[in-house]
Design a protein around this nucleic acid. Sequence first.
RNA 1: GGCCGCUUAGCUCAGUUGGUAGAGCAUCCCGUUUACAUCGGGGAGGUCAGGGGUUCAAGUCCCUUAGCGGCCACCA
Length: 774
Amino acid sequence: MDKAYEPSGEEHIYKLWEDSGIFTPKIDPKKQPFSIILPLPNANDPMHIGHALFTIQDILIRYHRMLGESTLWLPGSDHAGIETQYVFEKKLAKEDKSRFDFDRDTLYKMIWDFVEENRELNVAQMRKLGFSMDWTRYHYSLEPKIIDNVLATFKKLYHDGLIYRAEKIVNYCTHCGTAFSNLEVDYVDEVTSLYYMKYGPFTLATTRPETKFGDTAVAVNPKDIRYQQYVGQDITVDGLLGPFKVRVIADDMVDMEFGTGVVKITPAHDPDDFEAGLRHHLLIKRVIGFDGRLNELTGKYAGLTVAQARIKVVEDMKASGMLVKIDDNYNHRIGRCYRCKHIIEPMVMPQWFVKIDALAKPALKAARDGQVKFFPLRFKKEFTDWMENIRDWNISRQIVWGPRIPAWYCLDCHPGIKLNFLTKDKKVVTGLYVDLKDKYSFDEIRSGLQSLSAPVGSIFYVDSPDSCPKCHSKNLLQETDTFDTWFLSGQWPLSTLGYNVADPTKSSPDFAYFYPTSVMDTLWDILFFWVARMMMFGLYLTKEVPFKTIHLHARVVDKNGQKMSKSKANVVDPLSMTAKYGTDALRFSLVYGIAPASDIVVSEDKIRAHRNFVNKIWNAARFIEMLIERQQEKSPLLAPVGSKGDLEGFKDLKGKGDLDPADLAILQKLNSLITSTTKNLNTFHFGQASEDLYQFFWHEFCDVYIESTKNRPAQNEGGVDALPVLVHILLTSLKLLHPFIPFVTETIYQNLKAQLGWTDPFLAAAPWPTVNEI
RNA sequence: GGCCGCUUAGCUCAGUUGGUAGAGCAUCCCGUUUACAUCGGGGAGGUCAGGGGUUCAAGUCCCUUAGCGGCCACCA
């Protein structure tokens, strides 16, 4: 054995494992199944330190494999809808192009190829980190069978009356060109201006003077005696585009203390005002387009961006004396796109929604009844609170990268459908079908299609008919909105295990055996995005929870407690750390001394410290190997007692009654270590488990016990041979450490296996230690 | 505004049901005797954020104050 542990052999070890098939479990009714579905990484996302935290899952998987369970860790990768399209569009921009230069089919194929270039990389990197995944069961989110399930789920929801289209106010990002769900908006505290303006008989305060062209009411609190005389009246307001009339309404939404207690109501561009509009049956007047610019209803302001318009409107109001004052130090929250950070523009547009109550209630019940357990427990409350207040889920996105919503419209029944397409000579045409149908053939429209927008109430068919069931026209187009990525990944445990939504009796045997899965481990930030959606879909489709335990971990931060990000230049790259210190050192430093769901501090210092620990183990093994060789020089055929590493060897020792007091002490400590490690792994206390193992191996076994045996009298002078105990403790420690640091432990095992007659071909599949009576 | 978490050695953090304060890094002294200097031996360093309470006993449970952080929420 070399003087220091050399991690360059890791690749070889991994290949031995994988080729042996120990990562590929068999369906064995006599065995307990244990399964984890990998939180699928984005296919085009290079590995970062967050992915290295899959180590937590590998520890669980390796532990349960050693317990003798039929253990499945199922890997996969995600096409990651908006994320990937965003990255791809940035690439296009560098080439001075945009997505509007392509029809949707062409764009889709381009992104497909882009993702395929990177997808393999991810897989290789996960092998490098030693993750014992079953690659024979790997899945990619755009496989046909997985998409089939997504479409079938949509149809089932539709037939159960849980899908509807509605024109609601949604979070629209004019930069990304799509609507988002509530979860995808980041609210950021910002200091802006609050403008006080004259408004008919009132003065009112607003942060958005540029939307006044879309005002269709003005509101006061019903209890506000100052304004009671006006309630129900139409008032005339002097606007920048001439006088206009609005109704004064009374609504509890108005805070009398805020500003002047008067609020202008713009139903088309503000979520609160939209709700007020519904309550008071107000007109929705759109003045901002999907391009983020003011539209033709705004006269001379038309064509300006929202930001430009605000400046111009304020200037003009100042000039005409409408502006009363500006409070420049107004602190409030602004919604920004979680992806591109641009300001979200609330917009009224037709979208697809899932009625969520029917899905949320069973999930809420499952959490409360303990069908699914949370670790740490505090997340149970977060989960149930969220489920209780959940709103209908907007599942449509105006992007191309992802499965399209399977709904078809008849253009001839609905000539008011708005179309965007590229003509044969690549010119963008926008307009209503009724105005375009005589100029362009249906085929030209279809093949160049970029997007369509059907009015709410349009009839749609979910089974892709050849012709319109009503008018028999063949001019049918599929909805161009795609599914929210989480609509697909929310069904991931089902789809990857071969559940067949359309016909559950055709589901794979894997599904029957491994579902519900054992543990779902992920970063807490996708508890709502993903975990909650999987719970809802799992229960909706199968009546069973998708996982029995939800284990949530925190994010990795640097040694100053800062979140790692490229812009802060504080990222610890897992692969370069692995190259420098070995995979085991990295893995151990990710769990050592970590409290459940508290930030995980990783620094190069820490990784180096654990490289030293790995090396310590290596050298202890090297020392023992030396002792064995020395003994075998004397009597070559004699394997040390206890070399089998289990109870067998020990019965002999016990029978002889010839243990040294130091032997007894260390064996007792080993027993309690077996007990505590087992308990800690069962209860997700990885930090504690790793600390105990470290402390025992280094400071008790190496520093105290091994040192003490060096001074022990030789056997012919009345001493007790320590070698059997040394070997026993080494092997047991290797087993206990293996889930955490698989490479060094397996390497040592393979080196000593033949010499010591260890019978398990791999440490990775050797039985987990149990307590020996002493 | 609601909810949750954190505050322990110079730094970063452990401390699972309450029972004489721990680790890594840094620091000081000594040490190369047959594993390991990626090492060994030894030392210094904490009124466990402040206050109150329960208890024979509290870093650990309860109340409270302060600071920091996170999540959620329709206040213009």
